[in-house]
Design a protein around this nucleic acid. Structure first.
Lengths: 235, 235
DNA sequence: CATGACGAAAGTGCATGCACTTCACTGCTT
DNA sequence: AAGCAGTGAAGTGCATGCACTTTCGTCATG
């Protein structure tokens, strides 16, 4: 009933709306590795048919966020520690490139925008726990977008989401405090410092994030998908 | 009629069969950037319904090999020179990692396998023109697979196909001769040499391939999709 | 009490049908 | 001859339906 048939408004692909919703739910830790994602529940939750939900799951599987096995219910992907190691190595390589392209070329407006994200990170310090991870991720993605290289952006975005999933799966609760000051330092060094110093700082930052997250790994099962996804329907 | 209903034989996902077919057709230059890929023609060509063809196109679009615009016929992606530059930069970063993991750890069997691929490249020197590009690509993908890191493999594979598409789109006919000797040198250095030397050689090799391919850019239109894809149905 | 068989319920795999959009072509106007 | 509206054909977007597979609870049996 909530679905409008010939919606005159720009409806920028309902499939990507599902993808966005699930990505966010994953990155914020609302969805856990192993959680089931049945096509009809998904479709119902977003007000579309199974066909579209299925298509969305295919995309998410291609991004490595969802496990898709034939004749089986799709699940949120469960990265192994080896996967996580792999993901962070690749992430370092890609974000080094980002920093390399950006070093010394940040405009004042860009610096302001980045600092604003960090400020939001600061404000979310003791709000809902997922928000800080999402903001930290957004920082890195915005950084990539500032290079103006769409393909690099795509890969950085994807690997950031995978890293976020790995963290929520294998990491401990998250110590956001340090990431904030590191992000501020990063902005400064990218703006001023020589490219290789900035790249190295990025690599160190990511290594720190990765190693800060070891141990742990909780499980949760049988929670209600529709209520989990409810906040992620809109945007 | 050609479709068998309950095919008892292992049919490892018919969708990925389409993806494989199109990827190969693209990498071998049988499909050109801008070529149309209508869902029903695709489905008919592979003996499946539009549903599956559509799904396959979605995957290929996620990989950047296909352009998908709402209400429009899918086309083979047409990378711009800027895209190509971007793609090769990322490729260098990723393949540096591959070499870094592999340096000094190649087994004799692996060295033999790699040399065998290069031998095939040599044999295909003046065979069908697409074959040498495919083999060169296979060399790099096998190299990645030898790291045993599935996620790295996925990204390297994807970026290799994109690079292949860029080459077929923007490159000149291809001078395979040099790539062959460079591949042989690479094997040696990865097997023996220090990691950073091998990584640098890989970077240089890829830069050489990239810069060898500038200029050019031909167009072809209105060719018959079914006959183009016929050789790519089976495997 | 454990165990295994069976059957219904839940879920996926896929083709088909219909509404809507875009495309290509025709013939009319200037 | 150059544009341009109109119109059928071609193509996509999506929901639905049916066959098949998996899952899970139930009950009979050792």
């Amino acid at each position: 009933m909530t679905t409008r048939k010939t919606a005159s408004r720009s409806e920028g692909d309902r499939m990507s709306a599902i993808c966005h919703g699930i990505r966010r739910a994953i990155i914020e830790g609302a969805l856990f590795p192993g959680d089931r994602l049945p096509e009809d529940a998904l479709g119902e939750s977003f007000g579309v048919s199974r066909t579209i939900a299925r298509h969305a799951l295919g995309q998410l599987a291609a991004e490595g966020l969802v496990d898709l096995r034939r004749n089986r219910i799709a699940t949120v992907a469960a990265p192994t520690p080896a996967d996580a190691r792999d993901i962070f190595d690749i992430r370092v390589a890609l974000e080094r490139q980002v920093v390399g392209h950006l070093a010394g070329h940040l405009t004042d407006a860009q610096i302001r925008e980045l600092k604003d994200i960090v400020r939001q990170e600061h404000d979310a310090r003791d709000g809902p726990e997922g928000a800080s991870i999402r903001l930290a991720t957004e920082f890195h993605i915005r950084l990539a977008e500032m290079t103006g290289r769409p393909i690099l952006v795509r890969y950085v975005t994807e690997i950031c989401y995978r890293a976020g999933l790995s963290l929520s799966s294998l990491g401990r609760p998250h110590s956001s405090e340090c990431a904030i000051s590191e992000h501020l330092q990063l902005i400064d060094t990218i703006a001023k410092g020589p490219a290789d110093k900035a790249a190295q700082m990025m690599a160190d930052h990511l290594e720190a994030v990765a190693s800060r997250a070891l141990l742990g790994g909780q499980e949760a099962r049988g929670r209600d998908l529709v209520s989990i996804l409810a906040p992620y329907r809109g945007d």
